[in-house]
Design a protein around this nucleic acid. Structure first.
Lengths: 112, 112
DNA sequence: TCAACTATACAACAATTATTGAAATATAAA
DNA sequence: TTTATATTTCAATAATTGTTGTATAGTTGA
C-alpha cells in the first residue's frame, strides 16, 4: 500500500459519520445493508449519506452492488486488513522493541 | 479507545505532510528530531510545520520535550499500537472469518 | 545586555470538505 | 403507462482545514 492510498483511507475514517457507517457495515458483514437501512440506522439525510458512501466507495473501503432499486453496501474487510498491516509496518518499522511491550511482543505477528 | 479519539488520530494521519512527519519520526525513534531538522528534511516553511506538529501533538500522536531553545518531537508508538488494535477490532468485530483468509488466520492474534 | 537563533502565535487568506434541498434517474408495482 | 420508491446528482452555501508572512517569546553565547 502506498502513501496516497493510505492517506485516502485515513481521510475516509477521519469523520464520525463515516466511521459509524463503516462500523455498522462491519457489524452486518457479510450481508451488508442497503442505503436506506444505513440512513435509518444513523438518522442521516439521504443526500448526506450518499455523499459519504460515495467517498468511502471511491476509497475502496466499501463495495456496492445493485439490487433492483436498492444499493447494497458492504465493508471491504480486506482493505481494512491491508491498512492495519500498513499501520503496523509504520509503527514497528525498524523499531519493534519500542512499539510493543515485552509482554505483548508475541501478539505482533502480522508481518511474518 | 473511543470513537472520538480514533477519529482525531485518523485526522492526524489523513494528510500527506503529517503522515510524512510521523514516518520520519518513527524512522528516528527513539531519539526523535527537533523541529528544525524535520523542516529541513521535509522542506516545509516553519509555520506550516508548526501547525501540523501542534495538531499531531494535541492528538497525542507525538510527544514533545524542550531542549534549550529546541523542541524535540518523538513518535508516540504506544498510541499507534492502540490505534492498530482498535482498527483490528473494528475489522474483525464478530467476523474474523471474513477479515482474514484461512491461511492468515493464525496471524491475527492481537485480540487474544 | 545585546545580537543571533529556534520555534510558536497570530492574522489574513486560500482551499477543501460537509451539509442541505430540489431535481433527476432508475426500478418496481399498480 | 402511471405512480410510488430508492438513491444519486447538482447547485448553493456553510463550515472546516491548510498555507503563508509577520510579529512575538524564549534561549544561547559573546
Amino acid at each position: 500500500m502506498d502513501k496516497q492510498i493510505a492517506t485516502t483511507l485515513f481521510e475516509s475514517l477521519a469523520s464520525g459519520i463515516r466511521l459509524d457507517i463503516f462500523r455498522l457495515l462491519v457489524k452486518h458483514a457479510p450481508t451488508g445493508l442497503v442505503a436506506g437501512e444505513i440512513a435509518a440506522e444513523l438518522t442521516l439525510p439521504p443526500t448526506n449519506l450518499s455523499f459519504h458512501l460515495k467517498a468511502m466507495t471511491h476509497a475502496d473501503l466499501l463495495n456496492v452492488t445493485q439490487e433492483g432499486r436498492y444499493q447494497r453496501y458492504r465493508a471491504n474487510l480486506s482493505v481494512m486488513q491491508a491498512l492495519v498491516d500498513y499501520l503496523t509496518a509504520e509503527c514497528c518499522a525498524g523499531h519493534p522493541e519500542h512499539c510493543f511491550d515485552a509482554g505483548e511482543a508475541s501478539a505482533c505477528c502480522h508481518k511474518d
